[in-house]
Amino acid sequence: MAVLVVAGLLLTGLYLLACAVWPYANCDRCDGSGKSRSPSGKKFRNCPRCKGAGRRERLGRRLLNHTNKTR
């Protein structure tokens, strides 16, 4: 049981370290292009989720930002 707890803490620490180094991931809705098609499929517009950036902030990075603000 202790091995599972240590492994979980190690994986969580590695994930937070990765979020500190690579804070952004591709947007899920537009697959990183920053564009989404209109319902007819003929026109493009900025993705409403990422606002045309093509990137979103990872959950771990949001947690790190929140803890830094509260300190």
Rank of each mutant, 00 (worst) to 15 (best):
P23V: 05
C47D: 02
V6S: 13
V6F: 10
T12F: 13
K35S: 04
T70N: 12
K51C: 10
G60V: 00
A20N: 03
G34F: 04
R71Y: 03
K42Y: 03
V5W: 10
T70F: 11
R45P: 01
S40Q: 07
L11P: 02
K69W: 15
A20L: 08
Y24S: 10
R49G: 07
R55P: 04
L10D: 04
A2P: 08
K51L: 12
K35D: 04
K69Q: 15
Y15Q: 07
L64S: 03
L17A: 15
A53G: 09
C19G: 10
S38V: 01
M1A: 14
V21F: 14
G34T: 04
R55H: 13
Y15I: 04
R58H: 07
V5D: 14
T12S: 15
L10V: 06
C30Q: 00
K51E: 14
D31C: 05
L9M: 15
T67Q: 15
D28L: 15
H66I: 06
W22K: 06
V3I: 13
R55D: 11
R58C: 10
P48C: 05
M1E: 12
R55E: 12
T12D: 09
Y24R: 13
C19K: 04
L17E: 14
T70S: 13
D28E: 13
R61T: 02
A20G: 05
A53N: 08
L16W: 03
G8F: 02
L16V: 05
K51G: 08
G54S: 08
G52W: 01
P48Y: 09
C27L: 00
P23N: 09
K43T: 12
G52D: 02
T67F: 15
L63W: 05
C30I: 00
P48D: 07
K51P: 04
L4W: 05
G8E: 04
L4F: 08
T12A: 15
N46D: 11
A20S: 09
C19Q: 06
A7L: 08
R49Q: 10
W22D: 03
G13I: 03
R58L: 09
G52F: 02
L17I: 11
L17P: 09
L64G: 02
S33W: 05
W22Q: 06
V5R: 14
W22G: 01
P39E: 00
S38H: 03
V6R: 14
R61V: 00
L10Q: 03
V3P: 07
A7E: 08
R29T: 10
R62M: 04
R71D: 05
T67S: 15
